[in-house]
């Protein structure tokens, strides 16, 4: 009896599995990478669109008047309400804020407070290490390439310039999406492809194993028959009905046994 490690079935199954793993593994890596990139791109476009729409709706002249300590004034509260309404339109947006440049860096102006429950920053709160995208948003709409950290958490952001009546840029509006939401979107694609990959591999393994087993089973029938004949027992029945090479082998084998039976039969002895 052939050991399992030397069996053709094992060799076939392992060989096919390695081949399938190699092909699907490479496909998986490429697909996950490309899909994740596309998800990130679509999220960036979504944030850019919200930032641009919000910036065009804001009154730049009013926002330019806001100074530290004006958080309880109508002018501030009206703009907070407007940003909060915009943020509520998309429940994946954590916060919309405005900011402006100072002599040395940048500072927050309006904090919509939406989804946080309270405003985390006041007018004039300094922005620690403003990103390049934030600074460049004075010229045109920008989106972050990676997650950024704010006082309200880690987010993925886009910015658009706020203009006054004369078209002068007086600040920027920032739209923050929770990093976890973006990560979940990217993970979902990866996990779905991973699931399909696992199911595909499992199905392939089962099909290969069943296929190999069927093939080897018939070869075993021939081996057992040959073994019995080699011990003088010609009373063997080969029940293999296949149209492939193994079927042809079985037909030839049956013919050989038939001839042996005839030649060994007493009526046909010389």
């Amino acid at each position: 009896m052939t050991s399992i490690t030397n069996s053709i079935m094992t060799k076939l199954t392992v060989g096919f599995l390695i081949l399938v793993l190699l092909i699907t593994g490479l496909t998986f890596l490429f697909t996950v990478g490309a899909s994740t990139e596309k998800i990130q791109e679509s999220t960036q476009q979504e944030l850019l669109a919200i930032a641009s729409i919000t910036a065009s709706d804001l009154n730049g002249d009013e926002i330019a008047k806001l100074r530290p300590g004006m958080e309880k004034e109508i002018l501030y509260l009206v703009n907070v309400e407007q940003l909060a309404t915009m943020a509520q339109a998309d429940n994946e947006i954590v916060k919309i804020f405005t900011a402006k440049k100072t002599g040395t860096g940048m500072e927050y102006v309006i904090d919509s407070g939406y989804n946080i429950g309270e405003r985390d920053v006041k007018i004039g709160t300094e922005i620690q290490n403003p990103s390049r995208a934030m600074v460049m948003a004075y010229d045109s709409s920008q989106v972050e390439d990676s997650f950024v950290t704010r006082p309200w958490g880690t987010v993925f952001s886009a910015y658009a310039p706020i203009k006054n009546a004369t078209g002068e840029v007086i600040g920027i509006v920032g739209v923050d999406m929770d990093a976890a939401v973006v990560q979940d979107r990217m993970d979902f694609v990866g996990q779905t492809i991973y699931l399909v990959f696992i199911i595909g591999i499992t199905c392939t393994a089962i099909i290969i194993a069943v296929f190999s087993r069927i093939m080897i089973r018939d070869i075993h029938i021939l081996i057992n028959s040959a073994d019995r004949i080699s011990h003088g027992d010609t009373n063997v029945v080969i029940s293999i009905d296949r149209k492939d090479e193994i079927g042809e082998l079985a037909v030839s084998f049956k013919r050989m046994i038939t001839s042996l039976k005839i030649l060994m039969h007493k009526d046909y002895q010389p």
């Binding site: 013919r255 050989m256 038939t258 001839s259 042996l260 005839i262 030649l263 046909y268």
Partner: peptide, 12 residues
């Protein structure tokens, strides 16, 4: 006959 009985067909 050889298709069915092999080389011993002639004997039969």
């Amino acid at each position: 006959s050889m298709e069915y009985l092999g080389p011993a067909a002639i004997t039969l």
